[in-house]
Nucleic acid binder design. Structure first.
Lengths: 201, 201
DNA sequence: CACTCAACTTTCCACTGGAAACATTATGAC
DNA sequence: GTCATAATGTTTCCAGTGGAAAGTTGAGTG
């Protein structure tokens, strides 16, 4: 958190990280849409244009937040994978992350929020880490004879769709928006279970 | 389209619909994030504050666009349901709609774009129409003995998650973003098929 | 006709993201 | 050490935004 911001008066010391931390804070408070670069800079104690020394523009800052979040998601997915050898726990971890960091989840997956046009997507690599956890688990379950050993790409994509779909629906759809977290996790689990039946070997 | 805008000089005649039409146009051109109320009003040939006679605020206008889009999606899903008695065609119709109207799809499902706080969600009813098509199809397939006759709510939710998930992934994830529509539809079909296997009776 | 009231315009405000020009500090070559 | 230079700040400015407030227009009713 406190990234040893040795402010020397003028030069900040670690403004890039300070801005990311402040951005995460503001995003949590006002949501992904209402976040303003000026407020982030204000929170970090610098003028708003100081940010342009570290980020090309506002979207670049949001992209930075998305990358940090992707790394965090990958960590949490790996932890879940170590706790449990099924797929349900992965789904729950995914959902839990999204509910805990809805704004960051927006930056990660509503690419239009943070993507300029015509530029190769810098989030592609960052996002691969999270996908990898799921893909590995599928292959592992196939090797163990638990899942049907066919089309690992399609099965992986189908499962990711499933997990991502239930997550976004729970996050954004009014019917589910106000249900308690535990109930949401139960739904996610049930959905994955309902589907996993047909994928078993 | 041309809603007989009998402009009497001062009073527009059908400004509400004209704004929705202009909004849809602007959304298609600049995306859901960059849409500005002023540009919409400009396009409709009125001052930007004229919109406040028909919509409480900007988000209310976007909500109007979402409602129209939900109605359109329901129509297209029903048409698909009439053409085919499987689930895959529904998934493809869903994906096709999202790819054809990405901005509206954003208003529909990124609720934060158009939802004020503390107000009962006016999109709940509008969205029910689209969900209903899928729910009916599930019950129908269960009655026909094609799908396992258990937990229609969970199975319906699981399938909706699946379809919604693959759609948003194809729309927003760089790996898939640039693939041709036919290939995307093939993926959606394959995902649903991979999953439907286990739900068969 | 006179009144009312909804629909529209004008004007204003605080705020936004970003460009440009300037100020300050850190650093590496001599 | 000193001194140019690059990196990192600040200040000031601009066009554009969503929205509030107050004035204008004109259609409809008594």
């Amino acid at each position: 958190m406190s990234t040893s911001t040795s402010r020397t008066g003028y030069h900040h010391g670690d403004l890039r990280n300070a801005l990311l931390a402040a951005g995460s804070e503001v995003a949590r408070e006002v949501g992904s849409e209402e976040l303003s670069l000026r407020e982030v800079a204000r929170r970090a104690g610098v003028s708003h244009t100081a940010a342009y020394n570290h980020f090309a523009d506002k979207k670049d800052l949001l992209r930075g937040l998305a990358i940090v979040a992707f790394e965090q998601l990958a960590v949490e997915l790996r932890e879940a994978a170590e706790r449990d050898d099924g797929l349900e726990e992965l789904a729950v971890a995914y959902l839990r992350f999204a509910m805990a960091h809805p704004a960051e989840f927006g930056f990660m997956f509503q690419r239009s929020l943070c993507m300029p046009d015509g530029v190769p997507d810098p989030l592609e690599e960052a996002s691969r880490g999270s996908q990898a956890v799921l893909a590995e688990r599928v292959i592992q379950l196939q090797a163990a004879g638990v899942l049907r050993a066919e089309n690992p790409e399609i099965i992986g994509l189908a499962l990711w769709s499933q997990i991502h779909g239930i997550t976004t629906i729970v996050l954004d759809t009014p019917v589910f928006k106000s249900i308690p977290a535990e109930q949401a996790e139960g739904l996610a689990r049930a959905c994955v279970e309902a589907i996993i039946v047909g994928l078993r070997a």
